[in-house]
């Protein structure tokens, strides 16, 4: 079982505030996910290169050619708040 403190730590990194109930259910769910992933450790991977991508491709690149950007009105409209042509967010310095 994953430690409660670890769940709190991960929640804090994601700026999530969890209630006691959520914390308990999260602890349970995360533990079961980790246990499941741990089963992979049973497989013998001796001599096998780590896979970083499932498709055997390399060097998929694009040329350095500009493409049109979004109209600012369109991009700002996706956000909850905007001001002065910019996205407005709560100060990240505020305590969580």
């Amino acid at each position: 079982m994953i430690e409660r403190d670890q769940v709190l730590h991960v929640a804090r990194l994601s700026r999530l505030k969890l209630s006691e109930e959520e914390l308990a259910s999260m602890q349970k769910d995360m533990s079961s996910i980790l246990d499941h992933v741990d089963r992979l450790a049973e497989i013998d991977i001796e001599g096998i290169e780590p896979t970083s991508h499932v498709v055997p491709l390399e060097n998929v690149l694009r040329d350095d050619v500009p493409r049109p950007s979004l109209d600012r009105e369109v991009s700002l409209a996706q956000a909850p708040d905007a001001a002065d042509g910019a996205f407005r967010v709560p100060s990240p310095q505020a305590e969580i």
């Binding site: 991009s75 001001a83 002065d84 042509g85 910019a86 996205f87 407005r88 967010v89 709560p90 100060s91 990240p92 310095q93």
Partner: peptide, 12 residues
């Protein structure tokens, strides 16, 4: 300054 600000604007 960073300390004491209420909101922030983000320019991408």
């Amino acid at each position: 300054r960073i300390q004491g600000s209420d909101t922030s604007l983000v320019d991408f």
